[in-house]
Simulated assay, not measured.
Amino acid sequence: MGREKTFDGVSEFLAVAKRQSVRKAALELEVTPGAISQALQKLERRLGVPLFYRTTRRIALTEAGEALLAKIAPAAQLIETSLGDAVQSSNEPSGTLKLIVERLALPHVIEPILPAFRKAWPNVKVDITVSNLHGDIVASGYDAGILIGSYIAKEMIAVRLSPSFKWAVFGSPDYFRENGRPSVPSDLIKHQCVRFRRPEKGDVYRWEFIENGQNVSIEPNGPITVNDGELMRKIASQGLSLIYSSTFHASRELANGQLEPVLLDYSPGSDGLFLYFTKTKQNQPKLRAFIDTCSELRRL
């Protein structure tokens, strides 16, 4: 296979696989449907396997097409991102800033910062994905993510976006009046607790403490299991059970008196929300502009 032909038909293949339509792929690439079909046929002849099932009404990937897509799509995304980074080498922020953001960051970071950022940098578009499942943000095409610090990989550069907060047990005033307050972690065996199933792992989170200098984790006991933090806090506010959360997550309920913390002296440590990114991304003008906006608003 000649070197000049290595990538022939690849962009057409990716566009059709993405759109599941030759016509829509042609619109995306600004060529004719005939040109798309011809490029796919040449690619299939080179590879010696059909990549698509074709009928008069639809087009779908074959098993070989699925396997090829799984291998080259991440690389294509990385190439596209890298080319975009090269365009960003100018001093003036521009282009699209792609962020993947933990839901907790919406009211505390994104909502207050976004208006100021758009006003300061109108030439920068913002593409936000809300998810607690971050994975490989580079391969997924993101410039940066916002996540709780303890979940961020060590090789990432992290910029704090929130005050420090502590993990603790929370309950409503009514719950504590009726059931008393746990004074040590082992007291929790006598209390009803909301079990939290982590969406990113599917397991039930064990409550973590530091007692006598040792790490202690406790399997919460209770009849209610959820996978949503806001629902968990609402259940606790109704006086049904205790929950394990942070002073930041529960800041609204703490402020209005719906929840009260206990076992703060046994907290495993402080944490926070951070913007994180790789070293290769840190000099992007659009990302630097976002960091500067976050820092400015934190000082106010």
Rank of each mutant, 00 (worst) to 15 (best):
N132C: 09
A120S: 08
L133N: 11
S21L: 05
E111A: 11
L133M: 08
S251I: 04
D203H: 13
A17E: 00
R181Q: 08
K201R: 09
V16Y: 04
S162T: 02
D228H: 06
F290G: 04
G213T: 08
S140W: 01
I210E: 09
Y142C: 06
F274C: 01
D8Q: 09
R103C: 05
T129F: 04
W207H: 01
Q41P: 10
L47G: 07
S237G: 04
G269R: 12
A64N: 13
I36W: 01
A15T: 00
V101Q: 02
A120N: 00
L47F: 02
S94G: 13
G171P: 01
Q238M: 06
S270C: 07
A70K: 04
G171N: 11
H249D: 12
D271P: 14
F248H: 12
R198F: 11
R46P: 03
E66P: 15
D203R: 03
G222D: 04
A39E: 01
L147P: 15
F176R: 06
Q214V: 15
M232K: 15
P50F: 10
N227L: 03
A105S: 13
F170N: 06
A26R: 04
L47V: 09
L300P: 02
L300N: 11
F277M: 15
E102P: 04
T62P: 05
K5L: 06
G9E: 00
K154D: 13
R198P: 15
I210G: 03
D85W: 15
E211P: 03
A25R: 00
S295R: 09
G65N: 08
V49I: 09
L240M: 07
I152A: 13
F7L: 13
R160E: 14
R23D: 14
V87E: 09
E111P: 02
S183C: 07
A168P: 02
G239S: 11
S245L: 03
R299E: 06
P185S: 04
L43D: 06
T56H: 10
K286Y: 15
V194G: 07
E44H: 03
Q214I: 14
A17Q: 00
L69R: 13
G257P: 05
D271A: 08
Y244L: 13
D265F: 10
I137F: 15
N132Y: 15
F52Y: 13
H108A: 04
A144P: 00
S150Y: 13
S267F: 08
T32A: 05
